[in-house]
Write a protein that binds this DNA or RNA. Sequence first.
RNA 1: GCCCCGGUAGCCCAACGGCAGAGGCGAUGGUCUCAAACACCAUUCAGUGUGAGUUCGAAUCUCACCCGGGGCACCA
Length: 829
Amino acid sequence: MNEHEGHHEAASYDVQAVEAKWQPVWEKLDPFRADDAAVASGERPKYYALTMFPYPSGDLHMGHAEVMALHDVIARYRRMQGYEVLNPMGWDSFGLNAENAAIKRNEHPATFTYANIEVQYESFKRYATAFDWSRRLHTSDPEYYHWTQWLFLKFRERGLAYRKLSPVNWCPQDQTVLANEQVVDGRCERCGAEVTKRELTQWYFKITEYADRLLADMEPLAERWPDRVVHSQVNWIGRSEGAHVAFEVEGRDKALTVYTTRPDTLFGATFMVVAADAHLAGELVTDEQRPAYEAYLEEVRKASEIERMATDRPKTGVFLGVHATNPVTGQRIPVWAADYVLADYGTGAIMAVPGQDQRDYDFAKAFDLPIVRTVQPPEGWEGEAYTGAGPAINSANEDISLDGLEVAEAKRVTIDWLTAQGLGSGAVNYRLRDWLLSRQRFWGAPIPIIHCPSCGEVPVPEDQLPVVLPELKGADLKPKGVSPLAAAEDWVNVDCPSCGGPAKRDSDTMDTFVDSSWYFLRFCSPGATDGPFDPAQVRMWGPVDQYVGGVEHAVLHLLYARFFTKVLHDMGMLDFTEPFQALLGQGVVVNQGKKMSKSLGNGVNLGEQLDKFGVDAVRLTLVFASPPEDNIDWADVSPAGSLRFLQRAWRLSGDVTSEPGADAGAGDVGLRKVTHRTVHDAAELLENHRFNVVVARTMELVNATRKAIDSGCGPADPAVREATETVAILLSLVAPYTAEEMWERLGHQPSVAQVAWPTVDESLLVEDTVTAIVQVQGKVKARLEVAPDVSDADLEAAAMADPDVVRAIDGREVRRVIVRAPKLVNIVV
RNA sequence: GCCCCGGUAGCCCAACGGCAGAGGCGAUGGUCUCAAACACCAUUCAGUGUGAGUUCGAAUCUCACCCGGGGCACCA
């Protein structure tokens, strides 16, 4: 035979040539086009697979490569299972990156943006992703942001978009305000600059109105969302239960209401504190104390967020000159202003209970205010404020006594009493703040509002949408504290739609997270012209069955998109309230234990890796490296090893000598069992996103097939064909080029991506014999080959008769025998 | 400080409460080669972070601690 020659010639395939060969074939076959009709007619069940769309800041990088590889496994697998898969892709193409680049290059942000999109698009194609490109969208297209603006107006109609004057986070680097979610450790989430506070009138979405639902609806998601993300959101929403309590203030009609989680400690409230930067403080302060207060406020305003957030900082504050009355003790208590109380949480004021709150304790010590303990600390306790459990003390007046009650009971009694007296009530509070959505930058969706001196805020009439961005470029885009749009005279000056008088457009643009809060809906009907989406199409495809992306968006995109979905549901446009049924949060690709970065010089260039090892090897490496949620250290993995494996698998396809369609039933049973067991297990593993194990099992199948060819049933056995075809199908989820090449060599038409998931022959999953282990005192002493359906009694008898077991028992008395047929016998002596 | 998640071979990772090892990387030896690469064959290495507990039996369940990662944090 020409085995030597054949073997030599078939030792490997040319990776680059294979990639070039299949791309046009797939382009023509378009195997991933989602067919609306197939779902509408009930021909196939729908499956909406979505992966977070990228921001076009440059070419695709390792991070993209990982998500896409993982996501592709899911999309391709579901398709093979018979689902009609909607797997769209687009670009989150508004944002500062392009704007900053445009300033530097003296061009329009669109130039940079759309050029990068084309680069990424080509890379996606090369990367062999299973996207339906016919649904491609870009959030910076007027056809798209038309509807972002429309949604803004709808939200406003429902009272969910409003303007208010408030202290806001300001990023001095990006020259714009930021939402709370976009401030991480006092720094801008985007650029890392230290955030400062400014008092500005800004647009907000009233996400707090949905706090309870955003929290409650998380429960059913917890099963199929990563714990991390669920916990992040729960923490971020920060629900707490307590009470509102009204305090009379001398010389003032209106009571001073506070929120507290410890109404049971009311007897220990010896002073009150108002947030220094709350308007309330300015209202309360006496003329006499005003200069001191204003000096303090000035100081507070100068402090950065980072300074303010330090919890070990000494307490500062100023007396406002007024007194309130503790409603239970009747005591006259002073009202102070301090920066440890937050203006935008609760009512912006607290009752201070230094006996039971460390912060209040520190403040009381600093300003020599009285401290009363109202919860009995345990024997020998030596701390300062006591926050633990215990019976109430010093908590009685003529009307009510809490003394002796435990904390929970005391809370209940106090709330009941307050309610009866009309002094307060139980209350729930959230840490979540409204979403500040306006940005003082150019490259985003303009806020479709016109400010008229006589009519006030006037929405742009719907038939005048979209409000298209003007043609600004280069220096015109330089950030100057207000949006560059404000300086575009032709654009900003308009006639009021209401009265026809001269008016100005709102010159801010929307946070780009608004754009991405509804894109998954648009994909269901990307061409919709009379609404953001066709509700019927969304009913058909939605919600997203599997979302894949980075968990860094835990409280950003993933929270905002949930909010949008609920609002749209309330508007009657959606029949579901949660957008993403399941979420897979993949880890990040690092190098040598560190995040890849230019400054560390440890970046790994995706393009170079693809050139060197090929698309399939890189994808395989990323999928095989670890469970999808774990980080991958590029220094720990071996794309070269992946390529070797792919070549080894591919070589099988050249060795098969039986004809396509050969009856596998006549083939070697041993190999068939391995094949069918692998398919059976792979299905379950894929359901559970155990992709790395699926690859490992595929490797085993390749090894078993190799062995069968070389030293077993031989290349002509139909079982070898069956096994090799199965390898091609399994590999097609991860390594589409290699799989396609194998499929062709096996005598089939492309594309392997279009074949059905193999049917498992259940009879081949049954083993003739299984190995039962026999333990004595929990230690393995013998192995027995037994029938899978052996009875407990027979197995026990066989075990007791085994010479090794008899030796191990060594004549001792058998006290107990545990039998788990057919796998195990444990003898206790 | 509070709350989550995770610690298995030199490395990445498997293991329905039942034989600690499926797979890969690396290393070593061999076959092939003039030599090397590739390929193939073989070998190597842990008793599962630590300490208790439950159990006939624990990597797996419970508790405490240690280490690593994450979320929240002057949110009353």
